[in-house]
Design a protein around this nucleic acid. Structure first.
Lengths: 221, 221
DNA sequence: CGTCGCGTTGACAAGGTTCAAATTTGGTGG
DNA sequence: CCACCAAATTTGAACCTTGTCAACGCGACG
């Protein structure tokens, strides 16, 4: 499917990709037929892509097939840039699509060697972005119980698995984080309590003991 | 509420913020009472924050008060970093919270002067992040009709307001983007057609003429 | 001791999903 | 070019998860 390979000229459109690649401006053009995969979640991230024509969707899947599309990429848009070495989501051509591809020579590493501050900023932003991607999947495709279970596991992990999980936020905050109402959140907590996935500690409902982390993880498809 | 101001020492925890600020390592510590605002959406972004203790929520609001919390920030976490000059969302202390504050001397500009490639990468990632933030608000807090209206306006804008909006993606793709089913998306299109917000062009249902962009924008609270 | 904020629970309503079927569109081969 | 078949889209009806509204309990605090 390789159409041609050339050393990129310095026309305006090349600006971004050229800059992204540093001095490594070897571009090639590629074409994907509608419905074909550009890259898959978990695959090695070797290239950065810029769309010349067509459209690409980037998405995440739950184990049972539920899909959340993060975004559509249209001509001029770039995608596929990753912080680490693997792709955090999949990409497919929506229609017949031409892209310009640039070899990604580990952008973060390249940058680190040149400017420590820059890479620090970048890694902050990409961590935030990664969280947002996961949260879009939660908001778009998970049930109330799955959302609450995921929330508990997230807090548990970020607080380094304490015996007693002390939530600083109210039910309203949790609801607004998970895209639910306080009543639904409350009912989910009660359900998980009844199923002995968790227990409330003390009087307050913000001190929680996770009794079955694996069980909670199963909710989180 | 200012507790003390000091020239930051070079202890390990300072690493990130120090690097973020380049050589400008003047830090101060601040305290916020529970429920108080750290910064508001649209405000000038002057500082970068790192949480010492407590918790902070960052969120967006719709005009009628519906709220979507993007994330909770816990001790060690940083937030408030912006690409442009203003904050894209608000931040409030969930509980009594201490933070370390570093003056942000226009990070992007600082970086641009030092490394063109780095700033190019950063601006790509932050644009993507900004899109994700808006999309979380849509997925967490908007109705089906609001989502579809927002989708049409997004595509319209990205394709530079064509007379006929040619959607490259299927109803399934749109549904998976908006966190809905294809049936709901289809019904929303029909409703908007019946209300004369749009018209289908030709035979196909992927060629759309927007008849009332302002009307659509009103759906998008 | 009364009030207020927070959380839980119940009854009911509603928006969205599921299931099913009709209709249209696009692709393919004759 | 047309016929035919598969895929996509629309529409209808029943159902269900979640939201809404209301009541209640509990603890904190004046």
């Amino acid at each position: 499917m390789l159409l041609r390979i050339n050393r990129a000229s310095r026309r305006p459109l090349d600006g971004h990709l050229a800059a992204l690649a540093g001095e490594q401006v070897f571009c090639s053009e590629f074409s994907y037929r509608r419905g074909t995969e550009v890259f898959g979640e978990g695959e090695e991230a070797e290239y950065v892509y810029q769309i010349l024509s067509g459209a690409v969707r980037t998405y995440k899947l739950l184990s049972d097939g539920r899909r959340q599309i993060n975004s559509f990429h249209l001509p001029g848009d770039m995608f596929g840039l990753e912080n680490g070495t693997t792709h955090r989501f999949s990409a497919e051509a929506v229609v017949e699509t031409r892209v310009r591809i640039t070899k990604r020579r580990s952008l973060l590493e390249t940058m680190t060697s040149r400017d420590e501050g820059a890479s620090s900023v970048l890694s902050l932003v990409t961590r935030t972005l990664q969280h947002a991607e996961n949260h879009m999947l939660l908001l778009g495709r998970k049930t109330a119980l799955e959302r609450v279970a995921a929330f508990l596991l997230e807090m548990d992990e970020r607080l380094v698995h304490p015996n007693v999980l002390t939530l600083p936020m109210s039910r309203r905050d949790i609801a607004d984080y998970l895209g639910l109402t306080i009543e639904t959140v409350s009912r989910a907590f009660s359900t998980l309590r009844d199923e002995e996935m968790l227990r409330f500690d003390g009087q307050t409902q913000r001190e929680i003991i996770l009794l079955d982390r694996e069980g909670l993880a199963e909710y989180d498809a």
